[in-house]
Design a protein around this nucleic acid. Structure first.
Lengths: 158, 158
DNA sequence: TTGCTCCTCACGTCACGTGAGGTGGC
DNA sequence: TTGCTCCTCACGTCACGTGAGGTGGC
């Protein structure tokens, strides 16, 4: 591996582009997704993909579109689904994704609540400790209100 | 609508059968699922369904099997999926079902925890009330441990 | 014997992908 | 002019469903 640069060396560059901005004409998008351009037109007719259009009517595919096309290509070519199956699967995957997000949110909420409970119990312990210490220090008795009959002098039971 | 019974009147009866017990021979299962018997054999070969077998090798389909067949029939006939799609969809639906169950369980847990917190906060209020009442009842003073210097008040650690 | 089961093989149909053919604007 | 775009139409292929054909046991 020589590090010498030759004039024929290809270089890669990056350009920041919003993922839903139409940037690839059909021949490029087709190549990126490893599909026939005509297939892309067919998919559009079937409602599987909706590229933007230029002012002149030329289809313009975004990065998102290409990713979706690749996903479809994977399902049809590798798994052998037909287009009805692709539609259904894409729909189910979206539902599953939403449901999973809900699980994550609920798990987070559970953790929060458990932490809150721990904190609250900590405070209760602290209050108890206060009372016990006070009792020890003075020899007097501490009782809970609910254990005391009206007008009676407080006496500790437990 | 006459309520008179005639000899040709058909009646319905019910028999309790475990849902995974093989009870229908192929012709019956096919009729129940609105499919050709040969189609059921094909599905079995494709791994979409696995009926039990009698000692003599005759396929025996359970109620569960028939339900699954109907589900498949719906996907292929109504939605137009091919069998690869059916497999994938059944798999995804199972995942989705599991994830939804998890959501339900987590929601229940969240409700429990929220109730627990409410109860704990109630108790704290009660304890506070105890102290105030006691103080009010005896005229003595209540202090918090953190406000007391070390060695001033000993005893009890927890 | 009839009507079911089992199996394999073959054919018709339909969806899908792709190619051809003709148009038009950079 | 070349090479792209747009479109519609048509054909080849393949998966799927179903029918036929032959077997065997209640």
């Amino acid at each position: 591996m020589s590090s010498r640069r030759r004039r024929t060396t290809t270089t890669t560059t990056r350009i920041e582009v919003s993922s839903d901005r139409g940037v690839f004409m059909i021949s490029v998008a087709a190549e990126l997704a490893d599909m026939h351009p005509q297939t892309l037109r067919m998919y559009e007719q079937r409602g599987l993909i909706e590229p933007k259009r230029s002012a002149k009517g030329t289809r313009l595919y975004s990065h998102e579109d290409v990713q979706r096309l690749r996903r479809i290509q994977q399902m049809t070519a590798e798994l052998g689904l037909n287009l009805a199956g692709v539609e259904k699967v894409l729909e189910l995957e979206q539902q599953l994704e939403r449901t999973r997000r809900r699980v994550v949110a609920l798990e987070r909420r559970r953790d929060e609540l458990e932490a809150e409970i721990e904190a609250l119990e900590g405070k209760r312990e602290a209050v108890k400790a206060d009372i016990v210490r006070y009792e020890a220090g003075t020899g007097s008795q501490i009782v809970r209100v609910k254990d005391v009959k009206p007008f009676e002098i407080p006496i500790r039971r437990r």
